[in-house]
Amino acid sequence: MLVEGIKSRPVYMGLSIQPRARRHIFALEGEGAHALLDRKAALDSTALSRSEILYAPRGSQGKGNDEALRALGADMFFAAPTIATLLFRLRGTLTTAHMGTRLYIAGTEGFIGQAMIVALDHGMDHASVITEHRGSLARRVQCVHCKGVTEDVTHSPFPCGHCGLPLLVRDHYSRRLGAFQGVNIDAEEPGSAPDPEELFL
């Protein structure tokens, strides 16, 4: 389960399909495919004809999620090889989006965070973006010292992927950066960092 009670952390309410939207854009990653597939019943032919599905399988590669999503018969379907390519496509889609467009994001928290940044950059209100967390609890963490972002962090402390300092993963989340904060854990007594614990599997 997700850790409760972090005030700065977004709440992921789950993918509820908004029937009146003029356009539905689904940005999905890995197990996030099931967030949409589980709501097949809410997708009538009108909704599907207004839908664009962007999917990056990542860890769910080979499980057939991409075929199942394609089989929904949405107006547009795009299978992206990586998160970066999905976000590039999402930028393009939002650049030409109109009023009445709904964005739905589902997958790991790091993916939701990155797709949310794209949405914010295009002037969408974060509260209007519909999100669901699926898959790993691994965190996307920004080192507060060198500002480098390390993806898929499962342990705390962990070595910053950029400057190498051992970082404690704080329960403080920035929507603008799409990341948790990492702070040097042994600053007061260098070399005293405790063993890493697997906390975010």
């Binding site: 972090i6 005030k7 700065s8 952390r9 920004q142 507060v144 704080r170 329960d171 403080h172 989340y173 920035s174 929507r175 603008r176 950066l177 904060q181």
Partner: peptide, 13 residues
């Protein structure tokens, strides 16, 4: 890190 956060968010910790 905190820029863009609301009152409850930046006081989170």
């Amino acid at each position: 890190f905190d820029i863009g956060m609301n009152f409850m968010e930046w006081h989170g910790p």
